[in-house]
Amino acid sequence: MNDPKRIDVIGLLGPLRRYARSLTRDETQAEDLVQDTLVRAYERHGSFRSGGNLRGWLLSILHNTFIDGRRRHIAEARRLEQAAAISETAAPPPQESQVRFQQVQAAFLRLPDEQRAALHLVAIEGLPYQEAAEALKIPVGTLMSRLGRARATLRGFEAGMHLAPPSEGNRPLLRIVGGSDV
């Protein structure tokens, strides 16, 4: 999957679908987003550099497709509904670890889009910082400052310190290494 020379789109469907789920927070929309991404990638397949990083190229197209706003408004509208649905699926006897899983997932889904995207690519997909920054078209410094804020928010959630969306007040003191935070 990491072999940049091999053209294996099927093998990348997993990462693309997982990323789409984190971005849209909705399974149906996520599948549509991946479908649109594949169509877009096909339309502009000439822009793929031979021997380039296929995973980064596709993740980047997926992200742009999402950002384009076609989905964004719908996603926003369904956001709370979805977050609620996730808590309700806790029908089986909630063990302690399951409760915690749901809390972490709910906190993750409530992160601002750009922090959630950064955390997904780095923490869940395990992308190197450079590759994640390229997929998001941001400097590495910006990526790291988003990661830092996302992590601080998750820690805060878990400690039960607050359940409100992150505000300016709980920003960690993080040096921006390169570029400005957008």
């Binding site: 053209i7 294996d8 789109v9 099927i10 469907l13 997993g14 679908r17 997982r18 789920r21 984190s22 599948e31 991946v34 479908q35 594949l38 169509v39 990638a41 096909y42 397949h45 915690r100 899983f101 972490v104 997932q105 993750f108 955390l119 997904h120 923490a123 869940i124 992590r151 998750l154 820690r155 878990e158």
Partner: peptide, 28 residues
Amino acid sequence: DRDTLRLIHAAPLPRPAEAMIGAAVRLE
């Protein structure tokens, strides 16, 4: 938190729709 997120997202996904596989094959 990182490991929890990885575990949650490691759950196998349902088989992709035929249309998606078709689009992926066409792109490939």
